[in-house]
């Protein structure tokens, strides 16, 4: 690494990435319905490159759906989403939006990593195979290169020596860390976390949150849905409160946790925050 970047945190291991110039997420008036129920009712949100946005809100408020629209796992019914100025799922030609086809959508997805609540690791593949599958088939990386990088990433999430273990041979926390390594393997601009610790035993939560904390310093844009309020306060640049398919309030952690303006935000936090925390 050149001396010019010595100010970068020690965890920014990827020398190719110049932090904070890529990964701008712009969500504009996004709508999404399932049947008759409107799940997203015109959501707008901007996350700066390298920013960390934590989304909180009651269950069923549309947090997962919002994350899933960002990598086009869910098609939006209205509004648009762009990443570094490129529309997700569409291409601008003249004054028309052309829907992208399968292959192009897959290419866009390689720029966005996603970590799921229940890990969704491939159980029949080893930890290393889980991590090195996508770089080979989606990015045309050589097998040796993918393997080398896979081992490096497993090391980075604290799983050196478990490369040949199958997911079921690992603890929940270890599985989720493999899933994070898998998402990192494509060197994404943006990482989406959908309640990454909700399926974990309490004593395993921190080992996963610590890995995400490190990532927050690395210059990758993060969007995190979580119920871990202490963690949210630590790591977030912006905290977003969602309720019933809308963003009710957003701002710095300071602002949202200690001085929320909206009654709905206040009533939510009064239920989820422990009294000692809410000084």
């Amino acid at each position: 690494m050149s001396t010019a970047t010595t100010s970068a945190p020690a965890t920014a291991t990827d020398p190719v990435t110049t932090p904070s110039t890529r990964g701008l997420v712009e969500i504009t008036k996004v709508r999404k319905s399932f049947g008759a129920t409107e799940v997203l009712k015109g959501v707008s949100l901007t996350v700066e490159p390298g920013g960390v946005a934590v989304i909180v809100g009651p269950s069923g408020s549309g947090k997962s759906t919002l994350l899933r629209t960002i990598n086009h796992l869910e098609k939006v019914d209205g509004g648009f989403i762009s990443i570094d100025g490129n529309l997700v799922g569409y291409e601008v030609r003249g004054n028309r939006l052309h829907e992208l086809r399968g292959k192009e959508i897959l290419k866009q997805r390689t720029e966005i990593g996603m970590v799921f609540q229940n890990f969704n690791l491939f159980p029949h593949l080893t930890a290393l195979e889980n991590v090195s599958e996508a770089p080979v088939v989606a990015q045309g990386c050589s097998k040796d290169e993918a393997r080398r990088r896979g081992l490096e990433l497993l090391d980075r999430v604290g799983l050196k020596g478990r490369a040949d273990a199958y997911p079921r041979q690992l603890s929940g926390g270890q599985q989720q860390r493999v899933a994070i390594a898998r998402a990192l393997a494509l060197d994404p601009k943006i990482l989406l976390f959908d309640e990454p610790t909700s399926a974990l035993d309490p004593e395993l939560v921190n080992e996963v949150l610590d890995v995400i904390r490190e990532l927050a310093k690395s210059g990758t844009t993060l969007l995190i849905v979580t119920h871990e309020m202490g963690f949210a306060r630590d790591v977030a640049d912006t905290v977003v409160f969602m309720d019933q398919g809308q963003i009710v309030e957003q701002g710095s952690p300071e602002h949202i946790f200690t001085n929320p303006q909206e009654p709905r935000t206040r009533s939510f936090f009064s239920k989820v925050l422990e009294p000692a925390f809410n000084i």
């Binding site: 969704n120 491939f122 029949h124 989606a138």
Partner: peptide, 26 residues
Amino acid sequence: DQGQLEAAAALGIPAWRRSTRIVLPQ
């Protein structure tokens, strides 16, 4: 599990490969 396909799609793995490498072996 449906989540397997979703995870594979999110990783940009092409549809044919998703069937043969992820779903069929399971």
